[in-house]
Design a protein around this nucleic acid. Sequence first.
DNA 1: GCCGTTTTCGGCCCGACTGTTTTCAGTCG
Length: 569
Amino acid sequence: MTNEQIAGMFEQLADLLEIQGANPFRIRAYRSAARTIKSTADSFAALVEQSADLTQFSGIGKDLANQVAEVVTSGTHPKLDELRQEVPSGVVDMLRIPGVGPKKVAVFFKTLNLTTLDELKAAATAGKLSELKGFGKKIEQSILDNIDQAAEAGQRVSISVARPSAEVIVDDLLKLDEVTQASVAGSCRRRKETCGDLDVLVTSSDHGVPMDALADHPLVESVLQRGETKQRVRLSSGIELDLRVVPDESFGAALQYFTGSKEHNVVVRQRAKDRGLKVNEYGVFRDDEQIAGATEEDVYAAVDLPWIPPELRENRGEIQAAESDSLPELLTIEQIKGDLHMHTTASDGAGSILEMAEAAKARGLKYIAITDHSKRVSMANGLDADRLRSHWDDVRQANEQLKGIELLCGVECDILEDATMDLDDDVLSEADWVVAVLHYGLRQPRDQIMKRLMCAVTNPHVNIIGHPTGRLVGRRDGADVHMTELLKAAADNGVMMEINAHPKRLDLDEINAAAARDLGIPIVISTDSHSVNGFDVLEYGVDQARRAGLGKGDVANTRTWAQFRKLLK
DNA sequence: GCCGTTTTCGGCCCGACTGTTTTCAGTCG
């Protein structure tokens, strides 16, 4: 049972309790525990086996600790099963309709006995919803307008899709004479892997101007809401965007507020309260007097904290670090000197060795490793020993020709389903750099997955585990990796860990990357480029590292190759 | 349901927008 699964059960429980009208703070407790479990690197299943004290984790008390133990040992949750009996899953699906929350869902279920989205749609079409007390024609129509999207609603989009749109809109709003400041906020500013929607903030002498400009923007499909200070639109890409217009003296407070995360802000506001202050999106107030708010720095200073980088604002220790003046100096993309994972036409890449090298050099990289696939990946034209040796000859020859960049002979070697390496040790021993990866058999049981990873970690020639879990963001869970065990073995055997920068992978995630760093494992951020444009994704890997709190010293490919190779076993 | 050393009870962040109301509830972020 993975942390994700345990957290998922608590989240379902919270949804069901909400529809039943349970105590909102009890519901919050379940959500908060789910969040803690999801954002912990250690496996709760393993912790239960070791009889560890789970109440050491924030938001998990005696009762929830028992529930976790029960879930892990029995695989089921009696209270959840009971609630599922009482509330059909189709009722929970109704929560995905924008504008429909637990209270309305409860009315649909309890008074009209509607149990699926289809039944709800039929009832709305027949005009039955508007006959309910507290409901009218507008709500009914809004449900009809949105119900077909309910299946897609709530789905998050990749940061690589969301962020470019938001930045174009911010740039265009900044061109308006009436707009003085503008910024992306929300999860996009925190550089999360995915965004549920976009938040954009502007200050303007005239509220109407930026709102009109947004409504007419080529990326915008329709306006969903418009008030005095807030406008919600849908982009043609399907992403929804909130625009907020605030006065200049409130820009910092609004930016802080709308950047979130919610959990981070709760702590900031509690600190304000403890100091007799109130923080809202308009500023920091003592009684009715505004004492801060023009800049984010002022807001944090008002609660006795230094400015905290948005990537860290998740209430995962950054407040304590800020308090003790030990916030990390986060990695920047300019500090990356080499890229150690990429493909060429020798396997499934689109660029030649020289094309990839020139493109890397043009981006300021000083060294790259050519790491084409090994033979098991036949679909990608993976290389056997003979082809690989001949390919390395070409790499060495290219290295002779090129000035200003160093080329390394590498390979992305599969860890086979039977826990052996796809290439023999004598071949691997000739490589400058060996990336070991799982591609096939990701659904194998944990024991076999771990056997395979241990085979790679203990191999004397393997330098790094690439995309360690094999997950695809929002599409496929990774293999059932016992991460704590893997990281410990990697640390013991001098094996590094990759943050694969491709926005579909971002693997390790920020939780596990931080856990690796804590064990002193050098992290390498790699693009896994399959073409000369593939290097573009580096920024997403850097963002992931920043969210993990990594600095220059934690990331090995900030070093020159001469320094880097001293880290190799 | 969690949390805490001023508390083991009584708190738990705050405001905008919408739609349905004649002053507020629900939803959202």
